[in-house]
Design a protein around this nucleic acid. Structure first.
Length: 496
RNA sequence: GGUCUGGUCGUCUAGGGGUUAGGACACCGCCCUUUCACGGCGGUAACACGGGUUCGAUUCCCGUCCAGACUGCCA
């Protein structure tokens, strides 16, 4: 079993492409087959090396490793030329001389007359001598494939059809172009539909899994396989991934920047590799497992073309986020910390000097990351969530000031807390809790009345992880300093 | 317009001639609780419509409607 992923390097790898790559890879892995990567860069206008690099990066990040390649179509011209020659000699293709403008005019005419806008074969009807004269003169032409006038072309399709193959009417297809405009001396570049067939045949591809937008191409491609007398692979055309009920495309200009369609964009936002694989594996496919969260080896074992869905799938951001947060909570802590570090550094926080002097900075960082692991759904949320560990608050949440700081006797309370914590030994969360609970009791205050002002004083916020974990991580000196700062701030900013 | 493909809770889906139509995310409620989260428990919610076939259709068939893709000298 030989499968391939064949992206065109005209932009980043998007999530739909990643899912196509994943399914091909999964099937290859499951059956000990071969997964080939081929870059379809026949369009010199739009292909870039930068894009190729990005696509390879994204695949590697996802852990989708190819067994062969990457092959580049731009380096395989000889094969295509050879195949064109072959078809020409057999009379299966012919040169067509119309300019794009002429074609467009004809197309509009056809549409206006409610005719199917397929090529009218004007060049095929030219006398042989005329064709030869034009070719000799160096007139520009494209190669068109002569599609049979009658009959049907059946695409062996595992998904997008009923029990039978997917059937297309030849008469409705039109003689499609297989090679761009050129002359005999300077031939144009062959096109996708053609190169794809030549390569898949030469590379021995047995099974093509790709997006459903290629389904109608498949009919043309089958015609080409037949023309070459090559075996036709089996096709699986995946349902499309939709966003707000329209195709999620990398060409979509209106895409919301908060929800990038690229794998790299998601990575930069702090989506995890594990969550991304897990989530896209569920788009248009189901598995016999009860849970919807599973590691990739379970995925490989259970992937099955028969469990593919036929209808399009909407991309559910909520579910993706949920899975991401699940992995942040459940992946080995060490692994999460490792991945959070670049985000913290990119935000400009110097965690090494923020760590209490008595502590190993990296271990300390691990501790505070652990405190936010069940709150942050994206890696990119950690810097803001943890900011007060790196920089002492200089202002306090406005609503908190109003509701908490302006309560009865808060400055004195902060003093008392500072004093109590000074005497708390060891400076651990359990000891602090006992100490502050009893302080509350003596003052006749509910525990919340003690904890909330302290939280606000120390973090500047009304919400945080468990207060005592925070205090312990901050260390005694820093906590006392912040309590005193808060009290002073309160005295110079009294209730209006 | 033509060709092709689809249609089960809001979303992703399981299922399949007889089921209380199952799960997940989201949502709502309760519990836990020093805040915010996490977690636990529970709840609302679906077979597009009309004809057949059948003792019985959400499931099979046909139409309708709706949706999407393709209709490039892009891939």
């Amino acid at each position: 079993m030989r499968l391939r992923f064949a992206p065109s390097p005209t932009g980043f790898l998007h999530l739909g492409g990643a899912r196509t790559a994943l399914f091909n890879w999964l099937l290859a892995k499951k059956h000990n087959g071969t997964f080939i990567l081929r870059i379809e860069d026949t369009d010199a206008e739009r292909s870039t090396e930068e894009s190729t690099g990005q696509i390879l990066d994204s695949l590697q990040w996802l852990g989708i490793q190819w067994d062969e390649g990457p092959f580049f179509q731009s380096q395989r011209l000889e094969h295509y030329r050879e195949h064109i020659d072959r078809l020409y000699k057999e009379g299966k293709i012919y040169p067509a001389f119309e300019s794009p403008e002429e074609l467009e005019a004809e197309r509009e005419r056809a549409l206006a007359e409610k005719r199917n806008p397929i090529y009218n074969r004007a060049s095929l009807k030219l006398p042989k001598e005329e064709v030869e004269r034009r070719l000799a003169e160096g007139m520009r032409f494209v190669w068109r494939f002569k599609v049979p006038d009658e009959g049907y072309t059946d695409v062996p399709e595992t998904l997008m059809s009923g029990a039978a193959d997917c059937r297309f009417e030849n008469a409705a297809m039109g003689d499609f172009v297989i090679s761009r405009a050129g002359t005999l001396k300077e031939p144009g570049w062959p096109l996708y539909n053609f190169c794809c067939v030549v390569d898949d045949a030469l590379m021995g591809i047995t099974h093509v899994i790709r997006g459903q937008e290629h389904l109608s191409n498949a009919a043309r491609q089958v015609l080409l396989y037949k023309a070459f007398d090559y075996p036709v692979p089996t096709f699986t055309h995946l349902p499309l991934i939709m966003k707000n009920n329209k195709k999620m495309s990398k060409r979509d200009k209106d895409a919301d920047p908060a929800f990038p369609v690229s794998v790299s964009g998601r990575r930069e936002l702090g989506y995890l590799q594990e969550a991304t694989i897990n989530f896209i594996s569920l788009l248009g496919c189901s598995y016999p497992m009860e849970e919807e969260i599973f590691p990739v080896d379970v995925l490989i074992r259970n992937f099955d073309l028969n469990r593919l869905q036929k209808s399009n799938a909407n991309f559910d951001e909520d579910k993706y986020l949920f899975q991401n947060s699940w992995y942040i909570k459940n992946l080995p802590r060490e692994s999460v910390v490792e991945r959070v570090v670049p985000f913290i550094e990119a935000a400009g926080y110097d965690w090494e000097s923020a760590a209490p002097v008595s502590r190993d900075a990296y271990k300390w960082l691990g501790d505070i990351v652990a405190l936010e692991v069940e709150r942050c759904k994206l890696l990119s949320e950690f810097p803001a969530a943890l900011s007060y560990f790196f920089v002492a608050p200089t202002s306090y949440d406005a609503r908190g000031v109003q509701k908490i700081f302006h309560g009865e006797g808060v400055p004195e309370l902060l003093d008392a807390v500072a004093e109590a914590l000074l005497l708390t030994n060891p400076f651990t969360k359990d000891a602090m809790e006992a100490s502050l609970r009893s302080l509350g009791d003596t003052r006749g205050l509910g525990f919340g009345k003690v904890a909330q002002p302290v939280r606000l004083a120390v973090t500047g916020r009304t919400a945080s992880p468990g207060l005592f974990e925070v205090l312990e991580a901050l260390g005694r000196e820093e906590v006392i300093r912040r309590l005193i700062n808060a009290k002073e701030w309160l005295q110079s900013n009294p209730k209006a």
